[in-house]
């Protein structure tokens, strides 16, 4: 807060008034949509609302039903597999690419442009492009079979066991460039002298990265982690475009469950309960991060 003179002149009153009037959209968004909307959904997740939201409370019934629905369990399992793989691979690829680009190479700009352009594309475009590449007859499988390996099988989009990995390939393609960018910015922020010191001590390049550089980049890694994690929970359009949850329900994800129950199955209570579970998972991820990031010192 800036220091303010205690005298209340009309000008000062007007000044605050203009700022307040100008902030009305922000205040409404924060209070009505974000706080109000979220609270509304959480409250209604304890009701038996179906076609229309009603306030007849049924306790945790919706949650019990949710956790005994096969489709939700599959969604959660998929999210877990996708999430863990995506987290590890995106961090690994993002960091490795950034480290390679940081080796004072030529055409750095060109490589960076290539790695990042998928991020400009929507998940729908990403999903449809990879749906075509993974097409069993004309795509990767067809090409390998055409080269003579007749028994080769790689058909993730029609095999319920591995369909989530088909989506993973597309998801990593779309999102790893962003992490590469963030990692590169982090690497650029590291003092040249660290490298010189490591070289003087005779520490190899890989060892320097693992032992010195990565621990120094902890904040960057945490930011990347939060970014990837919050993106994973939201995953929706990629699945809709690439598999639409199929084959069967084997590639369903929680965000899709919420929307189908709210807007198609007309079972609002289930949708609210599922979305509240999503909120809870975000809180579980974010609170430790916020604690690490802002705990102890004053937030800016």
């Amino acid at each position: 807060m800036t220091s303010q003179s205690t005298a209340k002149r009309p000008v000062q009153l007007l000044r605050n008034l203009s700022a307040k009037i100008a902030s009305i959209p922000m205040i409404l968004t924060a209070l009505v949509v974000f706080v109000g909307g979220t609270a509304w959904t959480v409250v209604h997740s304890f009701t038996s609302s179906r076609l229309l939201p009603k306030l007849n409370f049924v306790g945790f019934d919706q949650y019990e039903r949710l956790w005994s629905t096969r489709r939700w369990l599959i969604s959660i399992e998929n999210l877990a597999i996708y999430g863990i793989c995506s987290l590890i691979l995106t961090l690994l690829i993002g960091f490795t690419l950034a480290a390679l680009l940081d080796r004072k190479i030529r055409f750095e700009g060109a490589f960076r442009t290539i790695f990042l352009y998928p991020f400009a594309l929507s998940f729908v475009v990403t999903g449809l492009a990879w749906q075509w590449i993974l097409n069993p007859d004309f795509g990767v499988q067809g090409v390998v079979r055409g080269m003579g390996w007749e028994s080769f099988a790689f058909d993730p989009l029609n095999n319920s066991e591995i369909v989530i990995f088909g989506i993973l390939i597309a998801g990593i393609w779309q999102g790893s460039g962003l992490i590469m960018c963030i990692m590169l910015a982090g690497l650029r922020g590291i003092d040249e002298d660290i490298w010189k010191a490591a070289r003087v001590d005779g520490i190899g390049t890989v060892k320097t990265y693992v032992r010195i550089i990565i621990p120094m980049m902890r904040p960057v890694f945490i930011t990347a982690l939060v970014l990837i994690a919050s993106g994973i929970i939201k995953i929706y359009d990629l699945v809709v475009a690439q598999t639409n949850g199929g084959p069967g329900i084997s590639s369903e994800v929680p965000a899709k469950y919420v929307i189908e129950y709210m807007f198609r199955a007309q079972n609002l209570g289930q949708g609210f309960a599922a979305s509240t579970m999503m909120l809870v998972s975000v809180i579980v991820i974010l609170v430790p991060w916020a604690y690490l990031e802002f705990g102890g010192r004053k937030r800016g």
Partner: peptide, 22 residues
């Protein structure tokens, strides 16, 4: 004003699904 701003920033992390129906 800072309180509203903090709520706004926290709101960016809330899954959209929680606010769709309201």
């Amino acid at each position: 004003s800072e309180t509203f701003f903090t709520i706004l920033i926290i709101g960016a992390f809330i899954p959209y699904q929680t606010m769709l129906y309201p």
